[in-house]
């Protein structure tokens, strides 16, 4: 499969601001890595179920019980910017 990468779109999806030079470097490196990944594509896998998890377990529920919350000061004090006990971010639009 011929590999094409719209690296600017990938960087945007990943929310990483990269310079044009950086984009070019990463694009070349990704292509190199993906060339190796093509080995994987060559392997016949018809009828093979994907494994997304090494364990054959299910659910892993917790009961609906209330536990302790953090003292807001313990995390707000580490935030880059806060106002009135809330996290502050720049304008969204």
């Amino acid at each position: 499969m011929p590999v094409e990468i719209d690296i600017a779109r990938v960087a945007h999806l990943a929310r990483i601001a990269l310079t044009p030079e950086e984009l070019e470097t990463y694009s070349a490196q990704l292509l190199d890595i993906l060339e190796h990944a093509e080995r994987v594509q060559a392997l016949p896998t018809e009828g093979v179920e994907p494994t997304s998890h090494p364990l054959a377990m299910v659910n892993g529920f917790r009961p609906d019980e209330i536990g302790p919350c953090l003292d807001p000061e313990s995390f707000l004090s580490q935030a880059p910017d806060t106002e009135d006990s809330r996290f502050r971010v720049p304008r969204i639009l």
Binding site: L34, V40, Q41, L43, T45, V48, E49, T51
Partner: peptide
């Protein structure tokens, strides 16, 4: 890519 890699994981 990802889907195929997960199948290789099964193998």
């Amino acid at each position: 890519f990802y889907g195929q890699a997960q199948k290789v994981r099964t193998l």
